[in-house]
Design a binder for these strands. Structure first.
Length: 567
RNA sequence: UGCCCGAUAGUGUAACGGUUAGCACAACAGAUUUUGAUUCUGUUUGUCCAGGUUCGAAUCCUGGUCGGGCAACCA
């Protein structure tokens, strides 16, 4: 009714690609069609940067009532594998998207071969028999023009013959290449007679041994988009210099011409998006695999406990521009907290147990107390947690000599055990040899069942706890940043980037104590351990006999901030 | 030394020649709280620089500065 309500409606994500597509829809270019695609090479697992691209491409298609394909750009048989194809499909689906068409660049090998022959017939491509070193040397430099070699002047007939014999398998790897005949003096290096085909007697994960020559990415990519009728070929900034080549290849053959639009790839602090380096981490066993919860891969963050909704919200939050920035990991963490805060059931778990004996509580008595499952969602209901004479609390929740900012348990101090009773610490028992506190002897106030004192007295702190008698022991894996430095891309040339891996990126706790209700948690189950963070049952290593929880994210920790600030 | 691209609070982004330059995260202060969580309120901080066009410029133009990309038979 009011204009204010209209204005308050959250705007659809605004970015320059939306603007371009909206304008095309307006002007009728592409006949009003919108058809995007996500074109990964199956040579590794997808990472968060790919998630941004997936959300962009599939999101655009959805917004404009168009289509989005999944296409594997599989032109390099040496590096590609079906394992990666499968993982990529899993990841796209996990993010919540379904492709309209499923294609492989290798589906187009025959067509692309014919395109190459057409270029040869038009005198626009030639077989070069130089060595790799010669090709490199003849290309010139950023400031100097390249040089022509005699092969550039081969006749059409000669090129046709040689190229067909390349396909027939008459030559060894590297003996010849097919190159476009454009301009060896072009200021854009990409246009200096780029290589189109190379000889590789290699087995391809889809075409098997049908081919011994393979088109290069630059020769294949634009044609693939053209063949699929893609309207907007969205890619990252580093392909901007290649756009003139894709345009040239398509226009010389008079083919359907998509519009390429480049955007800046995502960079996150404390991690890195290089597939090559991620592969190195996997191969050197620096992590447990592509799906190690510390990895920035989609498989990794999924196992870590992130939700698809949080990932999509994050991708929307970071935006789409042509500026190469560095986004704080905090933004990602905030996205998953925001989602899980609303949806994750609460439970109590003690990571570093400190035994508490209630001296005035009857031996053997079990009190079943009602606890709220999710304060953010009343429909989640309540559960019963057992309260007994011996309990565990968090070591961090007790200080023998508390600083004035510390509100939790200390000798002589009273705190509330969540959903239970007020307790007062009477004595801290120490190991006579080490001086380590081994046990707290406390009294409870029987009149405070549920947590409120009839006399109205207040306590400054509520802490979580678990019954020692009925605790479930579990393994808990605490994850932190993969790298200890913010900007991993900033590591100087020549320096070993792996020395900056965070040695504390994984802390394993083998004997955490969980409340009884968690005993039957299934793999993938997400919940909040109150006051600690969001956790999820590991999908690979957890068994009913040996539960394993992964920490997805901590809760915000004001005390830690205060103490850090105070020195 | 060539070509291409970019620049808005600490960070990531919005603003389409006219808004007190908006939002999110971060930071700070306060309120609420049986999670030092959540929630709510408020505060600090910004148009790279110099010229020009215009009644009016973050936006258009010119020049500079700074940053990114490009010389794989990788993608």
């Amino acid at each position: 009714m009011s204009t204010e309500e209209t204005a308050a409606t959250p705007a659809a994500p605004s970015n320059f690609i939306h603007d371009i597509i909206a304008e095309h829809a307006q002007s009728g270019r592409f006949g009003g069609r919108v058809h995007t695609r996500f074109p990964p090479e199956p040579n590794g697992y997808l990472h968060i940067g790919h998630a941004k691209s997936i959300c962009l491409n599939f999101g655009l298609a959805k917004t404009y009532g168009g289509k989005c394909n999944l296409r594997f750009d599989d032109t390099n048989p040496a590096k590609e594998d079906v394992e990666y194809v499968d993982s990529i499909m899993d990841d796209v689906r996990w993010l919540g998207f379904e492709w309209d068409g499923l294609f492989y660049a290798s589906d187009y090998f025959e067509t692309i071969y014919q395109y190459a022959e057409q270029l040869i017939e038009k005198g626009l491509a030639y077989v070069d028999s130089s060595t790799t070193e010669e090709v490199r040397a003849q290309r010139g430099s950023l400031t100097e023009a390249g040089q022509h070699n005699p092969y550039r002047e081969r006749t059409v007939a000669e090129n046709r013959d040689l190229f067909r014999r390349m396909r027939a398998g008459e030559f060894a790897d590297g003996a010849h290449v097919l190159r476009a005949k454009i301009d060896m003096a072009h200021p854009n290096m990409t246009m200096r007679d780029p290589l189109l085909y190379r000889i590789r007697h290699a087995h391809h994960h889809r075409t098997g041994d049908a081919w011994c020559i393979y088109p290069l990415y630059d020769f294949t990519h634009g044609y693939s988009d053209s063949l699929e009728g893609i309207t907007h070929s969205i890619c990252t900034l580093e392909f901007e210099n290649h756009r003139p080549l894709y345009d040239w290849l398509i226009d010389e053959l008079g083919l359907y011409h998509p519009q390429q639009i480049e955007f800046a790839r995502l960079n996150l602090t404390h991690t890195m998006m290089s597939k090559r380096k991620l592969l190195e981490l996997v191969e050197t066993k620096s992590v447990s695999g592509w799906d190690d919860p510390r990895m920035p891969t989609i498989a990794g963050i999924r196992r870590r406990g992130y939700t698809p909704a949080a990932m999509r919200a994050f991708c929307e939050e970071v935006g789409v521009t042509r500026f190469n920035g560095l986004t704080s990991m905090g933004v990602l963490e905030n996205a998953v907290r925001a989602d899980l805060n609303k949806t994750a059931p609460r439970a109590m778990a003690v990571l570093k147990p400190l035994k508490v004996v209630l001296t005035n509580y009857p031996e053997g008595q079990v009190d079943e107390l009602e606890a709220v499952n999710n304060p953010e969602d009343p429909a989640a209901g309540t559960r019963l947690v057992p309260f007994t004479k011996t309990l565990y609390i968090e070591q961090d929740d007790f200080r023998e000599d508390p600083p004035k900012q510390f509100f939790r348990l200390a000798p002589g101090r009273e705190v509330r055990l969540r959903y239970a009773y007020l307790i007062t610490c009477q004595e801290a028992v120490k190991d006579p040899v080490t001086g380590e506190i081994t046990e707290l002897r406390c009294t409870y106030d029987p009149l405070t069942r549920g947590g409120n004192a009839p006399d109205g007295r207040k306590v400054k702190s509520t802490i979580h706890w678990v019954s020692a008698e009925q605790a479930v022991t579990a393994e808990v894996r605490l994850y932190d940043h993969l790298f200890s430095i913010e900007n991993v891309a900033n590591i100087p040339e020549g320096e070993d980037w792996k020395t900056h891996l965070n040695p504390k990126s994984l802390e394993v706790i083998s004997d955490a104590k969980l409340e009884r209700s968690l005993a039957t948690s299934q793999p993938g189950y997400r919940c909040q351990f109150e006051r600690l963070g969001y956790f999820c049952v590991d999908s690979k290593d957890s068994t009913p006999e040996h539960l394993v929880f992964n920490r997805t994210a901590t809760l915000k920790d004001t005390l830690a901030k205060i103490e850090k600030r105070g020195g």
